[in-house]
Each structure stands twice: as C-alpha cells, then as structure tokens.
Amino acid sequence: MKILQVDHLSKSYGTGEAKVMALDDVSFSVDKGEFVAIIGPSGSGKSTLLHILGGVDKPTSGNVYIDGVDIYSLNESKLAIFRRRQIGLIYQFYNLIPVLNVSENITLPLELDGQMTPKTRLNEIVKTLGLSDRLKHLPNELSGGQQQRVSIGRALINNPAIVLADEPTGNLDSTNSKEIMELLKASNKKYNQTLIVITHDENIALQADRIISIHDGKIQMNEVASCERLI
C-alpha cells in the first residue's frame, strides 16, 4: 500500500523575474516498507522536498498524502501532532536538545504526547542502536556518530509512518556512516519502516530499494535500484 503519495508538488520563492522554482511539479509515491533514496546535486531541491514531506515547509502548490492523510489540509496544531506521531525526522546535524540526556531525547515525541514510554520498546531500540550504556549522558558527551544514533532512536520510537533522513551521514566519517546506514536499513527491514533518505552520495543511494533523482527541482529518474555493483 502507498504510505506516501506526492501529487504535483511545487515550491517557488520570490516573484516575477526573481522567481526561483525550488520544486517543479514533482509527483511520486512510496510503498510501505520501502527504502527510497532521493539523490541530486546541491541546490537541486532535494532538501526542500524533504522539508515539505516532513510537514516543516509549506508547498506553493500540490498535495502530500501520508498514510492517506493530506497533511497540508491540517491546521498548525494538528500538523504538529501528526508530525509527532507519524513522521520521524533525522537531520544532518543531529539537532538534539542539549539539556536532555540520551533517554529523554529519544522519548521526546512520546513525552510530548503525555504518554509513558513502554520500557520494552525503549530498551529494544536502545539495544539495536548500541546506546545501552549511554542512557544518562548528555549530547555534548557523545561523539558525532552516537549523537546521530540518538536522533535515529528519536525518529523510530513512535513507529511513525515514514522516516525522513536528510544527509544522515553527511557529518560522519566512513565507519560511522556505514554503521548508520546499516542501522537504518536494519530498522527498515525489521520494523517494516518506510525510509526515505536524501543524499548526494551514490554509494548510499545504491543501498536503497529505489532511487529517485532530482535535478533543478524536477524528477529525472525514479526506478528500482539495480544490484549492478562494480565487481
């Protein structure tokens, strides 16, 4: 089933001569459980696309349906709550709350809902992420890779419909990058978690089930990743 449906999405800045089309009539869909990579050079509009998918930036025209809900028909409050429960966002620069420890940062979406976090779920995620011995640490006591893992945890804790990752390995060395991608792929497989990753790195894109490439705000290619590796 289609967990994400994007219809004729456009985003422009400025008017008249200075008008810039960040996204130009983009349409595609993603099935539940798919791992999609969106690739493109810098300035191609992929970050803008991700922000709109995450409900964080408003499109100029077009619709985005997540799990059947037209997210831009929701008012601000409802959108915030929708985002809380259905969308997990992972950024390049981790964006953790500096005064909360690892455990608190991960359970943040649930806490906002006023819910108690089921211990088992937290433990499971923490174990998978390899953070079991760092639960009480503050972000500034963690390395870059560890911080990114915390933000993955935060994105997954609520079992959202889609997880959006914006250059999740952009700030990490190659070992950490590999680890992060493995974690993402593992959760994609294990929890059937739909995963959309923005990247400019081909190697990462090739690990996905499907690659969408964007250039100058338009979709150039949208196809299943081939296993053609250089042997």
């Binding site: 059947g68 809900v69 429960r85 809902d113 006023g114």
Partner: peptide, 27 residues
C-alpha cells in the same frame, strides 16, 4: 477506515494506537 484524529488527549492516543493495531492486523 482511518480512526486517527490529530489532537492532544488520551483518547486520541488510544485511537492512534488502535489504528496501529489495525494496520498490523491488516498486514
């Protein structure tokens, strides 16, 4: 059906969780 409503509150949370159950059942 989609029973979710995006508001604050315990009942809304319940609806959310039940929806997840539904999805799980469906799958």
């Amino acid at each position: 059906l989609d029973i979710r409503e995006n508001v604050e509150g315990d009942i809304s949370n319940l609806k959310n969780e039940i929806y997840k159950l539904t999805v799980m059942l469906r799958e």
